[in-house]
C-alpha cells in the first residue's frame, strides 16, 4: 500500500520540472515533500495521481503501475490538488454529496472516517463553498478527498496560505488519519511542518536534496550553529556578512543563525568584533540546526 518512484524525469517543453526523482513511501507512513514553490512538488503529485505521464522512470502506487493500472489507481487514491478545487457555487453538503456519488458511495457509508473533520464544518453545511474561510475550505476539501475511503492520500500544499492555528489543526487531523492506516504523501513550503512528518524529502528546482527522518536531517548539519543577537538587527546582519570568518549568516526569528568557517571558534572573538563595530547588548549562544538550516545548507551545494 506504499508508494514507490524510481528515476522519474519530467519536462514541459524545454523546461525541466523534475529530474531523477527516486523515493519510497512505506505503507502507513506520513511522508512530506518539503520545498518552495516551483520545486516540482505538484508535478510529482500529478504523476502519481496518473494525471501526467513521466518522460522516464517508473512509479507505483499501492503496488499499481501509474501507467498501466491508471484506472485502478484512480479508484483507490484520494487527491487534494494545490488550489482549492471544489465547486464554489455548490454548498458544503452538495459538494460532499457529489463526490460521494461519483465514487459510488454515500456520506453515511464512510461517515466514521470523516466524522471528526466534517463535524467542524457541519454547522455551515448549507453555505456555498466559495463563501468559506481558508481553513474551512481546507477541511471540506479533505473530507471530499476521503469520502471513498482511499488507501493512499495525496495532499498537495494543503496548508499554503492558511494561518498557523488552522495549520496546526490540519496536521492533527493528518496524524489521526495516519493511525487508521492511510498512507499519506503531503507537500508543504512551510519548513516548520517538516518535523511533523515521519520522513521527508527536501526538494528544490526539480531535484531531491535529501531524504530522511526530520531528526536525521538536522543531525547531519555539518557545522556548529550559534544564536547571535544585538540591539540592531539590520546592522548585525551587515556586520556579520562583512566578517572574514563568516560561513553563513541567516536571520532566524529574534536571532541570527551564525556559522563560522574555522574548525575552532571562540565566541569571545566574535563578541569583540561585534562590539568594536558599534553593536550593543550582544548575546552569542550555541543552538541546534533546524530543517531550514539544513535546507539552506543543502541548497547551496
Amino acid at each position: 500500500m506504499g508508494i514507490s518512484l524510481s528515476n522519474i524525469d519530467k519536462s514541459y517543453k524545454k523546461q525541466i520540472a523534475v529530474r531523477n526523482i527516486t523515493f519510497d513511501v512505506n505503507p502507513g507512513e506520513l511522508f512530506g515533500l518539503i520545498g518552495p514553490d516551483g520545486a516540482g512538488k505538484t508535478t510529482i503529485f500529478r504523476i502519481l495521481a496518473t494525471l501526467l505521464l513521466p518522460d522516464n522512470g517508473k512509479a507505483t502506487v499501492a503496488g499499481l503501475d501509474i501507467i498501466k493500472d491508471y484506472k485502478a489507481i484512480r479508484n483507490s487514491v484520494g487527491y487534494m490538488p494545490g488550489r482549492f478545487s471544489l465547486y464554489q457555487d455548490l454548498t458544503v453538503e452538495e459538494n460532499l454529496n457529489f463526490f460521494a456519488t461519483i465514487f459510488g458511495t454515500t456520506i453515511a457509508e464512510n461517515y466514521d472516517l470523516i466524522k471528526d473533520i466534517y463535524e467542524q464544518i457541519a454547522p455551515f453545511k448549507d453555505r456555498r463553498a466559495g463563501k468559506l474561510s481558508g481553513g474551512m475550505k481546507q477541511k471540506l476539501a479533505l473530507s471530499c478527498a476521503l469520502i471513498h475511503k482511499p488507501k493512499v492520500l495525496f495532499l498537495d500544499e494543503p496548508t499554503t496560505g492558511v494561518d498557523p492555528v488552522s495549520r496546526k489543526e490540519f496536521w492533527e487531523m493528518l496524524k489521526r488519519l495516519q493511525k487508521r492506516g492511510i498512507t499519506i504523501l503531503v507537500s508543504t513550503p512551510y519548513m516548520d511542518e517538516a518535523a511533523l512528518c515521519d520522513r521527508i524529502a527536501l526538494i528544490q528546482e526539480g531535484e531531491i536534496l535529501d531524504i530522511d527522518t526530520p531528526q536525521a536531517i538536522v543531525d547531519k548539519f555539518p557545522k556548529d550553529i550559534y544564536n547571535v543577537k544585538a540591539d540592531n538587527m539590520y546592522k548585525l546582519i551587515q556586520t556579520l556578512q562583512r566578517y572574514e570568518h563568516t560561513y553563513s549568516v541567516f536571520p532566524f526569528g529574534e536571532f541570527v543563525h551564525y556559522t563560522d568557517k574555522r574548525v575552532t571558534f571562540k565566541t569571545e572573538e566574535l563578541q569583540h568584533y561585534l562590539e568594536s563595530s558599534g553593536l550593543n547588548a550582544i548575546t552569542i549562544a550555541p543552538t541546534h540546526a533546524d530543517i531550514e538550516d539544513a535546507f539552506m545548507e543543502l541548497a547551496k551545494k
Binding site: 518552495p36 520545486a39 499554503t160 513550503p189 546582519i237 541567516f250 536571520p251 535546507f295
Partner: peptide, 19 residues
C-alpha cells in the same frame, strides 16, 4: 508565501534596509 528559505531571508534584508 511559498518562497524558498534563502530568498525569504534576502527579502527580509531588503525590508530591513528600507526601514
Amino acid at each position: 508565501g511559498g518562497v524558498d528559505p534563502i530568498t525569504r531571508r534576502q527579502f527580509w534584508e531588503m525590508i530591513y534596509k528600507a526601514a
